[in-house]
Amino acid sequence: MKRQATSSCVSDAAASQPVSGPCEADIRAQLHRILESCDFKAPDRVRRFLSYVVEQTLAGRADRIKAYSVAVEVFGRDTSIDVLNDPVVRIEAGRLRRALELYYFLEGKTDPVLIEIPKGSYVPSFSWRLDDQTLAQPLSAPTPQPRAQTRASFFDWLRRPWLVGSATALVFGTLLAFIGMIDQSRPAASSTSPLGPSLLVKAFTNLSPTAEAGAFATGLSEEVLSQLATFRELTVVRSEASNALASRRSVARRHFDARHILEGMIRAGEGKLRITSRLVDRDTSAIIWSAIYEADLRSGNLIDLESGVAQKIAVAVAQAIRAPSRPVSNAR
């Protein structure tokens, strides 16, 4: 049985006119569904970000959703913030987009309402999922006259055996040609491997008891994912998503059966951080690449440190995967 639309805004009027976009009640219900889902992998500040932009848009204040207002009202930045030099909103927007993509790939794959944050803007868009919208839209009623003519023409056609024979031959010929095309393309169609090299990114492990080091480990893990996602030739998945997919259908598991694994550790002491990262071949356990980076916690903004180290790691990992025969490095 096909899934019926669950929108609270679809009324009897839908039988006579096309369905418009989701209404306020539908959007808020979908927002609640996302925030309560275990598959929406996002920290509290990203959840606040999503709630803020949705509520501002529903209140008719979408024009106020700018990097400055988000930084001040959501992330608690000082009103003197320079958004051009503080990338916090851009970074968190990237994390929010990825969290929404993962949610709609997993638990939300059948949700009727889509909430998306288009790139280049922080204003969310709301739309019906295509299948649900198609089911909800009314079908035009056929007029009686064409229908009667079609029935009469069909029976007249059946009275001509030579036409039936020709049509049958044409159908069988087309069917055989189609089967031949399927056989020729079967190897490509049955392939479930990703388009490019696959990479599983594990969360960086914090080996220090300080909360500051823990926050840096979490932020660095997210930033590394963000930087790696810019390399379109790589298929990148985080470890949490991989674990969630372990209980899903086999096709999804094979698609994310990563050949390479990126892992790392963080240690803190006397105001300094030591970040160790390595790229491992899953099949052979060989270390393809490794590096050690050091950062001074007192030298500047933690987000800047995260972004700088993550960029170095992402570039080095992408190069190592492209050329796996290169020797292991220990850059600082």
Rank of each mutant, 00 (worst) to 15 (best):
D183W: 07
D183I: 08
Q184R: 13
S185E: 12
R186T: 10
A188K: 07
S191I: 05
T192W: 08
T192N: 10
S193D: 10
P194C: 02
L195A: 15
G196W: 01
G196N: 02
S198C: 03
L199G: 01
L200T: 01
K202S: 15
F204I: 14
F204D: 05
T205K: 14
T205N: 13
T205Y: 11
N206A: 01
L207M: 14
L207A: 13
S208A: 08
P209Q: 12
A211V: 13
A213V: 04
A213D: 01
A213P: 00
A213F: 08
G214V: 02
G214I: 03
A215S: 13
F216D: 02
A217Q: 02
A217M: 04
A217V: 05
T218P: 04
G219K: 01
L220Y: 00
L220R: 00
E222V: 03
E222L: 09
E223N: 05
V224T: 06
V224G: 01
V224M: 06
L225F: 05
L228V: 07
A229T: 04
T230Q: 11
R232A: 14
R232D: 15
E233H: 06
E233G: 06
E233N: 09
T235G: 00
T235H: 10
V236H: 02
R238T: 07
E240A: 13
E240H: 09
A241H: 10
A241T: 15
S242H: 11
N243Y: 13
N243R: 14
L245D: 00
A246M: 15
S247K: 12
R248Y: 12
V251M: 13
A252M: 15
R254G: 14
H255D: 01
H255T: 08
H255Q: 11
R259Q: 15
R259W: 05
H260S: 13
I261Y: 03
L262E: 10
L262G: 05
L262C: 06
E263L: 05
G264H: 04
G264P: 12
G264A: 12
G264E: 10
G264V: 11
M265W: 13
M265D: 11
I266G: 01
R267A: 03
G269M: 09
G269N: 13
E270S: 15
G271F: 02
K272V: 09
R274A: 03
R274M: 11
R274H: 04
I275K: 00
T276E: 08
R278P: 02
R278C: 02
L279N: 05
L279D: 09
L279V: 08
L279I: 08
R282H: 10
D283S: 14
S285P: 02
A286K: 05
A286G: 15
A286Y: 08
I287K: 09
I287W: 08
I287M: 13
S290E: 11
I292Q: 06
I292S: 09
E294K: 09
A295M: 03
D296M: 01
D296V: 00
L297K: 08
L302Y: 03
I303R: 04
L305I: 15
E306K: 01
E306V: 09
S307P: 03
S307C: 07
G308Q: 14
A310S: 07
K312S: 13
K312W: 07
I313D: 04
I313C: 06
I313P: 02
A314N: 00
A314G: 00
V315Y: 10
V315K: 07
V315M: 09
A316N: 07
V317I: 15
A318G: 00
Q319I: 15
Q319P: 00
I321R: 00
A323Y: 07
S325P: 04
R326Q: 14
